[in-house]
Design a binder for these strands. Structure first.
Ligand SMILES: Nc1ccn([C@H]2C[C@H](O)[C@@H](COP(=O)(O)OP(=O)(O)OP(=O)(O)O)O2)c(=O)n1
Ligand SMILES: [Mg+2]
Length: 846
DNA sequence: GCGGATCAC
DNA sequence: TATGGTGATCCGC
């Protein structure tokens, strides 16, 4: 294809960074505005010369079996994209300490001496910074191999040769449908990347390769961001080592020291012994078996993980406010603890980890720094039973951040990595090096997100979740591809039942149901329906009937398309491998009930019947009264030909071995008791057991009880301080909060996901309109002709979208509300006053 | 509101 | 032979 012209500005760029001007000298990137912080921001890359990390230094117990990786076989694999610099391995940085060395974080000035040093990366000339990846050769594209999983990086010493592993993965995968699907995705991504590269090259060409002006603008951005730096907090991230695996080891000591994985069809995690062979999370079981023939597979046991998690969290809670991000990971503020106990953060973290190990038998690792993002990354640095502390200085933070592979930044996944890599960004420091170029495509790459990473900024407060913040509940099941419509319905029933069960347990209703299907070619499709702005439901029957409608509609649609000669998504065959349902736009029935403010809003939730408000009767009730007719499909239809959706051909039949393939998927909608049986039967599935939603959220409600019961220290959090707005509850830490604060104070938490990828344009409009001149929007048409009268959001050319959006104002939708400023248009106010407020707003707000 | 992507764990 | 489940965010309609 045309893209990535050999001529291109890629060449221009190759020499771009280093060229004429002594960049570092001339453009002192930032100036600190904060008086208290007298830091001179280091240039993009300072020199790191480290001695190998202290590796073992401290830490007690928990033997860490040293590597012992086999040899490295032949294996070649052509890497199409040469890495620009053979970055030093895990260098030890000034201001960063691996263990408790009290040196760290004493506040004592580290001298990072960032004054000198030529940009490390730039010293290794890049042939073509901006290349597109094309797998022309016999070997699969680098990006494809990467997509297939395997070692993401690092820990070179711990594992057998990375390339060998990837080769094995490739060989095991290459003939599967999954592989084909990944290949296709990769091809699509390549197009996207090529387009971006072409655009960048064009923009560069227009400027003759001179991006000094752009660099200057970025430097301004950096200066602004720097003002937001907060170094006064001490945030620790604690992450259990091989969590699921460790839990099982605790229960069954015979597993210790052995290579085993948790999960069946797909591994959720692998023991460290298994990791030496290349086994890892999200890897297919059969692939893992190839990598490690003697690998043992352990079935999932979620109650075990929950229990272990609770134990860990209870301990962490003694040190400060916590915010669990998952069962095995939590953020915790050590600020107060350190002050009170007069210990260094490193020491505090050591205590924490030691206590967890002693009391639960689970080893955890920790990262400590002034903010959540750095701590999160740091927690992985010395992974098995180790910790890493970053001093609270701009220098230490930036130096640590700068050395990271861009992929290690939370929020940068495979796709973002590839996009960035195409423009020459491999490490965080590259962001600065290529800031001028990145500015040209700031919207696509989420420049300010990257800059925050470069500066080592992150969230510094611990927020907590409340039930009202939950957005959805879902159940989905994978099975061997099939095309029998009656069976689809039965699966849908089971899923509806399971979802209703989860809703009941967690006490939520919702007003939007989404059907998700995945075709045998791994095409994901979702179809949603919102019954009404005030119609909430949580019963299996509604889930089923609405889900069925969506499914039927989709099938009809496809038939039509095919009749018209078009090819629907996922191909002509309607052969599925997954069906799922998701309930969203939730209402917290617990809060609703507890407050008793239900006024005219009909019953909360009696059994499993629809919980709807008075206005909801129309749809749901109707179906409730309308008996089984809707469900018309008798078991007899099961094997009938006309029930086959594949007028086009069935897919690989089966004789399962792993999935949700119970041959007998009986309709149990009105089921009395054997749903449990059913569910238990599911256990044939690849995972052995299903997470049953709640994983994280379940604890939110009982949190109080929990801490009360286990409350050892029974406080550790009050006294001592004035402002103590923070409480502890369950909540994914990176979400919620960022956007709420119009002041946007902090910046990236672990991975706000707020601003990433192509979200830049939105931010420009929404956040920067105050000091507008700061960002330019030159390469953006900006205002479309259509604008929302309420929030002023503009819509380019789509009246439908606009009207839907405007309507959403009247639905009291979250996003709109957020955007509406206090003093916004009067029309908004008047309208709002007329409309009933959502239950969520009325009752769920603290 | 919807649907597709992306990401984390 | 063969690649999971739950939850969240964001974009562009
Ligand atoms: N794709 C994934 C990734 C993780 N998990 C589960 C299993 C893990 O044990 C747990 C914690 O995830 P981590 O990313 O923290 O991985 P581990 O704790 O297993 O290993 P590490 O020592 O790297 O933290 O989440 C999962 O089900 N599916
Ligand atoms: Mg972990």
């Amino acid at each position: 294809m045309a893209p990535s012209p050999s001529t291109s500005a890629a060449d221009l760029l190759a020499g771009s960074p280093p060229p004429p001007v002594p960049r570092l000298a001339s453009t002192s990137p930032v100036r600190l505005s904060r008086a208290s912080q007298s830091a001179s921001l280091p240039p993009s890359t300072s020199k790191f010369r480290y001695s190998a990390p202290p590796e073992d230094a401290s830490t007690t117990s928990v033997q860490r079996p040293k590597p012992s990786p086999p040899r490295s076989g032949p294996v070649k694999t052509s890497t199409l994209l040469p890495r620009p610099s053979p970055r030093a391995q895990e260098p030890q940085q000034a201001g960063v300490s691996s263990y408790g060395q009290s040196s760290a974080w004493k506040g004592k000035g580290k001298e990072v001496d960032s004054s000198v040093a030529a940009p490390a990366v730039a010293t290794v000339p890049q042939k073509r910074p901006f290349t597109s990846t094309k797998s022309t050769g016999p070997q699969p594209a680098e990006s494809l191999l990467r997509r297939l999983g395997g070692p993401s990086d690092q820990k070179a010493g711990l594992m057998r040769d990375k390339e060998e592993v990837r080769q094995i993965i490739y060989e095991a995968s290459k003939n599967s449908k999954y592989f084909i699907a990944q290949q296709e995705k990769d091809a699509q991504l390549t197009l996207r990347v090529d387009a971006l590269v072409a655009r960048l090259n064009r923009l560069l060409a227009e400027r003759g390769g001179n991006v000094k002006a752009e660099q200057a603008r970025v430097d301004e951005m950096i200066a602004e961001l720097e003002k937001t730096r907060v170094l006064t907090e001490t945030i620790v991230v604690v992450d259990a080592d091989a969590f699921y695996a460790s839990c099982h080891q605790r229960e069954d000591p015979s597993l210790v020291g052995t290579a085993f994985a948790v999960g069946g069809g797909v591994l959720t995690t692998a023991s460290y012994e298994a990791r030496k062979y290349g086994c890892s999370s999200a890897m297919a079981g059969f692939v893992a078996k190839k990598l490690c023939p003697h690998l043992k597979f352990i079935s999932l046991d979620f109650s075990l993980y929950s229990s272990c998690s609770k134990s860990i969290m209870a301990i962490l809670r003694q040190y400060g406010d916590i915010s669990p991000a998952s069962l095995d990971e939590a953020y915790c503020s050590l600020t107060d603890y350190c002050r009170r106990e007069k210990v260094t953060p490193a020491e505090a973290a050591e205590r924490m980890r030691a206590q967890v190990l002693a009391e639960t038998g689970l080893s955890v690792s920790a990262g400590v720094s002034p903010n959540a993002m750095l701590s999160k990354v740091a927690a992985d640095k010395n992974k098995p039973n180790g910790q890493c502390v970053i001093d609270p200085t701009p220098e230490a933070c930036m130096e640590f951040a700068g050395g990271l592979p861009i992929r290690n930044v939370p929020g940068i996944g495979r796709v973002s990595e590839r996009i960035l890599q195409a423009v020459g960004v491999h490490t965080v420091a590259d962001v600065y090096r290529l800031r001028g170029e990145l500015f040209l495509i700031r919207n696509e790459v989420g420049l300010s997100f990257l800059l925050r990473a470069y500066l080592g900024l992150g969230r510094t407060t611990i927020s907590h979740a409340d039930r009202s913040q939950r957005k959805g509940i879902s159940v989905e099941r994978t099975f061997h591809s099939e095309s029998n419509i009656a069976r689809f319905y039965k699966r849908l029933e089971n899923i509806a039942e399971a979802l209703a069960g989860d809703c009941e347990k967690s006490q939520y209703s919702g007003r939007t149901i989404t059907l998700k299907i995945k075709t045998h070619t791994y095409q994901s499709i979702s179809r949603a329906k919102t019954l009404g702005s005030a119609i909430y439901f949580s019963d299996a029957r509604t889930f089923y009937t609405e889900g069925k409608k969506l499914l039927d509609k989709e099938m009809a649609n496809r038939r039509q398309m095919i009749a018209r000669g078009q090819i629907p998504k996922g191909g002509k065959d309607f052969c599925l491998r997954l069906i799922g349902l998701r309930l969203s736009n939730l209402r917290d029935d617990k809060a609703t009930k507890d407050t008793g403010k239900l006024d005219g809003w009909a019953g909360t939730r009696s059994k499993s019947k629809a919980a709807t408000n008075s206005q909801g009767k129309s749809k749901v009730k109707k179906e409730e009264s309308a008996p089984p007719d809707e469900l018309a499909f008798e078991s007899g239809d099961l094997d009938e030909e006309h029930n086959r959706s594949d007028l086009f051909g069935d897919e690989d039949d089966h004789h399962s071995l792993g999935f949700d393939d119970e041959d007998d998927v009986k309709p149990t909608l009105d089921g009395d008791g054997d749903e449990l049986q059913q569910l238990n039967n599911f256990i044939r599935s690849s995972q052995g057991e299903h997470p049953s939603s709640d994983q994280l959220w379940a604890a939110v409600g009982d949190d109080v009880d929990l801490s009360g019961m286990e409350g050892f220290d029974e406080d550790s959090a009050d006294e001592e301080d004035d402002i103590k707005p923070i409480d502890t509850t369950h909540k994914p830490f990176w979400t919620a909060g960022e956007s709420l604060n119009s002041k946007k104070q902090t910046g990236a938490g672990p991975a706000p996901m707020k601003d990433r990828l192509s979200f830049e344009s939105k931010r420009v409009k929404e956040e920067m309109d105050e000091d507008a001149d700061f960002f330019i929007v030159e390469d953006e048409p900006v205002v479309g002709p259509l604008k929302c009268p309420v929030c002023e959001k503009s819509f380019a050319g789509s009246e439908v979208a606009l009207s839907a959006h405007v309507a959403s104002h009247f639905d009291d939708e979250e996003p709109v509300k957020k955007k509406v400023k206090v003093g916004s248009s009067s029309s908004a106010k008047s309208v709002k006053s007329v409309k009933p407020r959502s239950l969520k707003d009325m009752f769920a707000r603290r």
